[in-house]
Design a protein around this nucleic acid. Sequence first.
DNA 1: CCCCTAAATTGACGCCGTCAATATACGGCC
DNA 2: GGCCGTATATTGACGGCGTCAATTTAGGGG
Lengths: 213, 213
Amino acid sequence: MDSVNMKKPKPAPAYHHGNLRAGLIEAALALLDEAGVEAVTIRAVARRAGVTHAAPANHFRDRKALLTALATGIFAKLAGRIAAKLAAARGGRAARLQVFADAVTGFALAHPHRYRLLWRRDSLDDGDAGLQQAMDAIYDRLVAELSEDGASSVSADSRAVALWSMVHGYVALRLDGNFVALRDARTRAPRQAAIVTALIEGIGGEAKAKRKR
Amino acid sequence: MDSVNMKKPKPAPAYHHGNLRAGLIEAALALLDEAGVEAVTIRAVARRAGVTHAAPANHFRDRKALLTALATGIFAKLAGRIAAKLAAARGGRAARLQVFADAVTGFALAHPHRYRLLWRRDSLDDGDAGLQQAMDAIYDRLVAELSEDGASSVSADSRAVALWSMVHGYVALRLDGNFVALRDARTRAPRQAAIVTALIEGIGGEAKAKRKR
DNA sequence: CCCCTAAATTGACGCCGTCAATATACGGCC
DNA sequence: GGCCGTATATTGACGGCGTCAATTTAGGGG
């Protein structure tokens, strides 16, 4: 047994020209789910992956790059889930819009830290092409759902922005604890569905301007 | 602050039994506007206020407490602006809802870092009574605007949540750079107004009004 | 087989938040 | 005025962070 020039006897899962990048993403995701984006530090991720604190630098320029890669993957997963649910959806447009809203809300409530990361622009490389593309995919899907005609006086584009804004805003406020899960007092539907209904039907303007609908 | 009998010296610009607390808030606000919440560190605030790094500890337990005080003041200012604009507003309910949305959007775009801080729950003392109260004031104002009847099938509460969610979501997405300022293709109104119109009028469900459920 | 290069380690630097010990200045009280 | 208690501010330290530079290690191509 040589003492001086000794090799690491580690059975090592063989990083080093292996899969450290994937291992880091995995560790980062675990930390994110457990304790939020604040806990996803380069050093903590490295510890969890079993490497030293500077090893990640070979795979991610800095912390923002790591979080951006993480967020891009999360966006892709969310987009995939939305697409799958819409593909399986039955019913007319109102029902499809509800499906869209449900998909986003469900994902966000199931993985709050992941959803929050998606919008933590100060922690992400804005301008990252992959990230931008992953985000656009979701919005484009929504515009497609709304592109055909419409009973509103505003354009399909604005209607898409309205729905996407409302869903995102509702989720953001829910995650921040400003709303709790409730049912609508009239329709008994979950509030999350009721507000989509409100957008589809309209909340009414002047009392005199009631419209048949 | 809570001694049995206390006097208001009200004197010199000199700190030390003066107005350091206010000075720290002022310095923090300046840093916030200049470089975002990340830049509002205890030490940077102390430097800007001309004291040493540990002086703020006498006035704020920790960084969260400082940011919470900052956010509470910002919330109060926003609520005041909303109330003022609504008080001066003419027109029916649709117009008033637009005023509300304009007030929030205008504030957020004018002071993006301030608006963002309001929702950085991980940086704030959630559960802080003053903060919660300042937030509720805005929501309550909105519910009041919507409380009387309505042409929608959903309750006033859900309609308030819908509008507040949409406005907040739109602003959040705008601040994140996901939308740019545009005009609606049909109405030529700024998109920010168009989406409120969309909510008031409804975006339409099935092409032929088919009410089920 | 050797060597080149990518990957990982070690160590350092200056930030940060926070705590403990110390110094300072104000206001009440004699 | 002079003392003193106490609120306030300073000094210094600690560990954790991101990041950089220098070094060591491993693995594949010539």
